[in-house]
Design a protein around this nucleic acid. Structure first.
Lengths: 236, 236
DNA sequence: TTCGGTGCTTGATATTTGTCAATCGGTGGA
DNA sequence: TCCACCGATTGACAAATATCAAGCACCGAA
């Protein structure tokens, strides 16, 4: 399904931190073997354990990264456009540790892993970008681990709301972008307990109706949540 | 305290995956600004939030990486010789996300972060090695997250024992290398519950006395623990 | 050897979290 | 419009995990 190269259709790929600084010839080389595909919702793109044949780039839609063990499942993260996923597996040429499924109709660019590794070896700027990206991912997972191990589920929910509020430019009112039961899984709890958590947070001025969240008294919520840049600031 | 360069005293540093392939001149450049220091036990080497001035290499002894929040503390990992830690912070030139303390008398090589970044830019093999190392670290943390979110504490303990057994070449009997209360923290549980977990695992043929562990029936323990390479194999 | 300290273990209890079942409420299709 | 479905919510209960307090065992120093 090559209808023009992916890069012609999606110049924002070129703007991604990962590709922005690399040489034109090398970018073309990467895109030559790449292809763009559109997937319906709820399609499993990759399964954990599979060999990592492609680096994936979400161009539109959104993707859920999840893992299973012993008939249990947990959501690990959500990938929004425009960004990549399973970079580490690609680099190491190792099996995927997570599965991925589309949450909605999504367009994904697939870049052959061996091309990524080949270009990595000849383009220092690209190598530099990959390292920065990987370091960023690593630090995000560490923050997530701290969140899980140091906080109760109620504290995790409170801090999640504060992060989402910051993302919405600090507005008192904003939307949850995630289905609640998946949010619960991301936060390491059950949907039932997420419901109860929202209710508990009413005493700190939080009101959740449907996807609409209102933070009545941010200072009060922060007094309870005690957000820390070393856990909650995903930009550094 | 420059008593000969660190690399003269510890040739195994040069053998580290991270440094093995790089050019001699560049390695010398890194070591020129580095220094070796000996620390007594229980010394806090770095504190989370501090700027990342040095890449650390544990040459002997061992180091505990831990984090705190709201008067709670959790052990994130243990670093054994010979390996590095806080590579990601060094690369990103961002504050440490974890604190580090010596567990015993330890010798540590400190390499100025800016030297690491400078050499990274001029030595493609070094860059390659850093990426591989970071990808490895990332994948380890993901596995740890899966362990925490998908398993109960009893299952985590069971799988930990199987991993340690594998590390001890599969011997029926082996030693715990970690103080139990720190192990509990690493596994995300209290020391009391670790004790009770060991007792529960007696019904699967596990016997723990002091630091001595005996796995009476490995197949039986595995039937309960259900180890998975996508969580428990830290080599891939 | 004895003493004090420290870490481990144990039991009782409290808290947190998960499970199950029923109900509510919105949405989309017949 | 109505109905069926699915996710969210609620309550009752169960399981997992943490906390607290006491006792035990080992180890090093006096």
């Amino acid at each position: 399904m090559h209808l023009g190269t992916p890069e012609q259709q999606f110049p924002e790929i070129r703007e991604l931190d990962l590709f922005a600084e690399m040489e034109d010839a090398h970018f073309k080389l990467l895109m030559r073997g790449a292809y763009l595909q559109t997937f319906p919702p709820q399609i499993e793109l990759i399964s954990e354990g599979d060999p990592s044949d492609f680096l994936h780039i979400v161009v539109s839609g959104s993707v859920d990264l999840f893992s299973t063990w012993n008939r249990r499942e947990t959501s690990m993260a959500t990938v929004w456009p425009v960004s990549t996923f399973i970079l580490a597996a690609t680099i190491k040429n190792a099996p995927y540790l997570m599965s991925a499924r589309t949450l909605e109709k999504s367009r994904i660019v697939l870049v052959p892993s061996q091309d990524v590794r080949a270009v990595f070896d000849i383009d220092a700027r690209f190598a530099r970008a990959i390292v920065t990206e990987l370091a960023q991912c690593y630090r995000s997972v560490i923050k997530n681990t701290k969140d899980l191990k140091l906080r109760t589920s109620l504290e995790r929910v409170a801090n999640y709301l504060l992060r989402q509020q910051a993302r919405a430019s600090g507005e008192r009112e904003f939307e949850l972008l995630t289905e609640k039961r998946r949010l619960a899984s991301v936060l390491g709890m059950t949907p039932e307990n997420l419901s109860r958590a929202f209710k508990s947070l009413q005493s700190y001025g939080v009101c959740v109706t449907g996807n609409r969240v209102t933070v009545g008294d941010q200072a009060d919520l922060e007094r309870f949540a005690k957000p820390s840049p070393l856990i909650d600031d995903y930009t550094t």
